Computed example of a mutant assay.
Amino acid sequence: MQICVFETELGVFGLGWTEAGIARAHLPGLSGETVEARLLRHGAEVAEPPAAIQGVMAMVRDYARGVAVDFSGVPLDLEGLPEFHRRAYELLVQIGYGETTTYGALARQLGDVSLSRAVGQAMGANRIPLIIPCHRVLASDGKPGGFSAPGGAASKLRMLALEGVQVGPPDTGQQSFAF
């Protein structure tokens, strides 16, 4: 995997890619050095992004400026992920800018509402946040639920607000605000 770290209006963002597509993304909230170190842990090397990756970087920068961006056509490398996660992510990339769904709705689409917790686990394991828009998945009560990116649920709320979506406040203990 090759990686790059770049500035956006929300802060430092990181991408990792293979020949198959984007394999990792790191949301803003940490220093460039920390983002790079975290991406390098996965056996990566820093590289000059090819044209296709520069295109994805431009899309991320547009998103950070509040432009409605559709990442659904971005090639992804989901190698090594459980089949359930892949299926959940395939459904999730269809949820557009400014739209939301719930853990339960995704679970029903995957065959059984009792899979809601498994959907939550798949969202928490998402290694390509924003491009696989796990921030658009809410709890059934309209609250944000968890978010494993820097800043926790407050970052999720900020991303949704950027898209024009207002939801309830995060649960206590997840109030940090990273970007």
Rank of each mutant, 00 (worst) to 15 (best):
residue 148 S to Y: 05
residue 139 A to M: 08
residue 130 L to D: 03
residue 156 K to V: 08
residue 131 I to L: 11
residue 133 P to I: 06
residue 130 L to P: 07
residue 144 P to F: 14
residue 144 P to G: 14
residue 147 F to G: 04
residue 127 R to G: 14
residue 152 G to Q: 00
residue 154 A to C: 13
residue 138 L to D: 02
residue 145 G to N: 06
residue 138 L to M: 04
residue 144 P to A: 15
residue 158 R to C: 11
residue 141 D to Y: 04
residue 130 L to V: 10
residue 150 P to N: 08
residue 149 A to L: 08
residue 140 S to Y: 12
residue 142 G to E: 14
residue 149 A to N: 07
residue 158 R to S: 11
residue 154 A to R: 01
residue 159 M to P: 02
residue 154 A to P: 14
residue 157 L to Y: 01
residue 127 R to M: 13
residue 153 A to R: 00
residue 132 I to E: 02
residue 133 P to M: 11
residue 130 L to M: 14
residue 148 S to V: 10
residue 128 I to L: 12
residue 136 R to Q: 01
residue 153 A to L: 06
residue 155 S to W: 06
residue 156 K to Y: 10
residue 146 G to P: 05
residue 151 G to Y: 06
residue 148 S to F: 06
residue 134 C to F: 03
residue 151 G to Q: 00
residue 134 C to S: 11
residue 156 K to W: 08
residue 130 L to W: 01
residue 159 M to D: 07
residue 141 D to G: 06
residue 138 L to N: 07
residue 127 R to Q: 15
residue 150 P to T: 13
residue 152 G to R: 04
residue 132 I to Y: 02
residue 151 G to W: 01
residue 132 I to A: 03
residue 129 P to S: 13
residue 136 R to L: 07
residue 148 S to D: 13
residue 149 A to W: 02
residue 158 R to W: 00
residue 143 K to M: 12
residue 134 C to H: 02
residue 141 D to S: 09
